[in-house]
Amino acid sequence: MYSLKLVTFVVLSSIPYFCYGAKREDFDLQKMFEDMGEEGNKMRDECFTENEMSLADLHDYDKAEDIPEKELCFYKCFFQKSYVVDKDGKVIIESIKAIEEVKDLEESDRETFTNCLKEIKPVLECKDMVEFEKCFDQILM
C-alpha cells in the first residue's frame, strides 16, 4: 500500500503544477504518468480505458477551469482507484494524511491542505475535480 500512497501523492501534487501552475509542455505531464510502477500503471490504464483516453490525451493548462471534462474524469477515476476519493465522492482525509509526503509537509501547510479538502463538496462529477485540485494550489504554488 505504501507504493500506492507514494504514487498517489506524486500524481496529486504534480497535477496542479503540470496542468495549470506552470508553463510546461504536454510531454512533462505525460512522462509523469508513463511509468508509475505495476500498481500505478494498472490503475492508470484502467482509467484510460474507462474514459477512452491514452497517455497522449493528457495536456497541460493555464487554469484548473480549462481542463477538459474528459481529463477531469481520468483524474477522478485515478483518485478513486487510489483510495483518495471514496465511491460516494468523499475525499478520504485519513488516506491523504497517511501519505508520508503529506506527513512531511510543514504543519501549517498540512493543515491548510487538509482543511481545504474537508471543505470541498463530494467529487461526484468529473467537474468537481477542479475544486479538489485547487487545494493543492494552496500549498504548492
Rank of each mutant, 00 (worst) to 15 (best):
K42C: 13
Q80R: 15
E101Y: 11
E46T: 13
E52M: 06
V84W: 12
A98I: 04
F132N: 00
A98K: 14
T112W: 00
F9M: 09
S13Y: 10
E38F: 15
S82K: 05
L140Y: 12
F18W: 04
P68V: 12
K5M: 14
M53K: 09
K63Q: 11
S108Q: 15
L12H: 13
E101M: 13
L117V: 00
V84I: 13
T8C: 12
C73W: 07
C73A: 14
L105E: 08
F136G: 05
F79M: 09
S108H: 13
P122I: 04
K87M: 06
I120R: 10
V10F: 10
E25M: 01
K63R: 12
V84S: 13
I139Q: 06
F79L: 08
Y20R: 04
E100C: 07
G40L: 10
F78Y: 11
G21N: 03
K127S: 04
A98N: 14
L58D: 00
E50D: 13
E65S: 11
M141G: 12
D45Q: 12
E94N: 11
E131F: 04
C19K: 07
E133T: 14
V123Q: 08
A22C: 11
C135L: 05
K118H: 07
Y83G: 04
E69A: 14
Y83C: 09
S13G: 11
L55V: 00
V123G: 01
K23V: 05
V85T: 02
V7A: 10
P16Q: 05
M36W: 06
P16M: 03
K76I: 07
A98D: 15
A56P: 02
D128H: 14
D66C: 05
